[in-house]
C-alpha cells in the first residue's frame, strides 16, 4: 500500500456524561512524522487515540485523515493499525485465525503466507495454531502488533506501546517505530518519551478533573 497521509485535528474535545475529558486539542502531522501524545493518567490519551482511529466520535472539533495514493480497500479502516491495552483478540481462536479474520473482513487474502511471516516477526512463530486463551500478557501484546500490521496500514496508532513486553519485544517495537516514523505516519501515546525518537511533533493533554 503506497499512501501519503495527513492527519489533522482541530479544536478536538471529548465529554463523557458532562465530564470534560479534554478540549481544544489541535495538531497536523503527515507521512514521515511521529506524533507523541503525552498527559497525566486519565487525561484522555487513550480516548484521543480512539477518536483518531475513528471508533469514537469527538464531542467538539473535527478530525480528518487525508490520503493521497493507492488505497486498495477504499475504506478508512484499511489505512489504520491500532495497538491499545483496551484491544482484545478472540481467545477461542488461534493467533493465525485471529489474523485471518482481520484480513478476510477487509476482503484481503493471505498472500504468500504473509500471516506466518508476520507471526515470525513478532516472535510468535511457534504459537501460530495455539489458542489465544493460553497466551501470556506479553504474547497477547505481540499478537496485537501482528493484528495492527496484518493489512500493512500507513497510519499506526500505538497506545502504551511497551506495555507487558520483555526486552526482546521492546526491541521489536523500537525497530518498528523507527521504520514507521520514516515511511508511514506514527502516533504514540505514552508518558515515557525515551520510547520515541527525538524528531516528533508533541501534543500534551491537560487533565480537566
Amino acid at each position: 500500500m503506497i499512501v501519503d497521509l495527513r492527519l489533522e485535528a482541530s479544536h478536538l474535545g471529548k465529554t463523557f456524561n458532562q465530564r470534560v475529558i479534554f478540549r481544544e486539542v489541535s495538531f497536523a502531522v503527515g507521512t514521515g512524522e511521529t506524533l507523541l501524545v503525552t498527559g497525566r493518567n486519565g487525561s484522555g490519551k487513550s480516548t484521543l487515540l480512539k477518536i483518531l482511529a475513528h471508533v469514537l466520535t469527538p464531542s467538539q472539533g473535527l478530525v480528518r485523515l487525508l490520503s493521497e495514493g493507492r488505497n486498495p480497500g477504499g475504506s478508512l479502516r484499511h489505512l489504520i493499525g491500532f495497538v491499545s491495552p483496551y484491544l482484545n483478540l478472540y481467545d477461542e481462536f488461534s493467533a493465525r485465525e485471529n489474523l485471518q479474520f482481520a484480513l478476510s473482513i477487509r476482503g484481503m487474502h493471505n498472500e504468500g503466507s504473509a500471516i506466518d511471516r508476520l507471526l515470525e516477526r513478532v516472535s510468535l512463530g511457534g504459537f501460530k495454531d495455539t489458542a489465544v486463551r493460553v497466551f501470556s500478557s506479553g504474547m497477547r501484546q505481540r499478537l496485537k502488533y501482528a493484528f495492527a500490521l496484518v493489512h500493512n496500514p500507513p497510519l499506526l496508532l500505538l497506545d502504551e506501546p511497551m506495555a507487558n513486553l520483555d526486552q526482546e519485544g521492546r526491541g521489536f517495537v523500537q525497530e518498528l517505530m523507527a521504520e514507521r516514523g520514516k515511511e508511514g505516519l506514527l502516533v504514540v501515546a505514552t508518558n515515557d518519551e525515551t520510547e520515541v525518537e527525538r524528531n516528533h511533533v508533541r501534543v500534551h493533554i491537560d487533565a480537566f478533573h
Binding site: 501519503d4 495527513r6 475513528h54 466520535t57 473535527l62 478530525v63 480528518r64 485523515l65 487525508l66 490520503s67 493521497e68 488505497n71 480497500g73 477504499g74 475504506s75 478508512l76 479502516r77 489505512l79 478476510s104 473482513i105 476482503g107
Partner: peptide, 19 residues
Amino acid sequence: MSECISMPSIDRSSAQWFT
C-alpha cells in the same frame, strides 16, 4: 491531496459489505 476521508466512513461497494 486527492482524496479526503472524514467521519463517518462508508465502505465503497456492496461486494465489500457482503464480504
